[in-house]
Amino acid sequence: MIDTRVKSPILAFFIRYIFFFITIFAVYIFLKGHNAPGGGFIAGIIFAISLVILNMALSADEMKQILHYDPLQIATTGLFIAYGTAIAPVFFGYPFMLHKMIHLHVPLLGNLHVGTPVLLDFGVFLVVVGVTTKMTFTFSHSSDSDINTLAQDESGLSNTNEEPVVAPTNEQATTE
């Protein structure tokens, strides 16, 4: 496996802090999305970029510890949230995908308008984060030798060292 981590320790140090700032920015963009430029998609990409940058500083194992979940599972969770939001109104006799707003008066924050659209947006957010990071990690952790086979027969990439998400028979390769 080749090491995609940045070589400079200073950069590696900074990247960890940049990660937090970008993450906070992503959350901000997500929350204000319904009323101002932003939203789940944009926030998702921003958060994914921050993870990708973090990935440059950390090894694959460290990344796995931080992320805790397989990115594909994160994306699938996003799908479930989105589908759930869409299906829920059916059980209340409304058309599929009808959104509801809840108007709350919270003591400190004032009038709060929260609605089911946020849930759908959150689903989008998770899907974008999951998908983007999954692709980046797969690319960055695939081994050099595989690419060489690509160069030889132009036929596609062979085994990778990814965890066996798709192909259970690749399990041996993971332990390299």
Binding site: L72, Q73, G93
Partner: peptide, 25 residues
């Protein structure tokens, strides 16, 4: 309510996603 007609679309999507999690044949 004719919500039924979304079923042939949403149910396969849902099941497809479930089988992504339930991934061992």
């Amino acid at each position: 309510m004719t919500n039924w007609i979304v079923l042939p679309t949403i149910l396969p999507l849902l099941l497809g996603s479930i089988l992504l999690v339930w991934r061992t044949p």
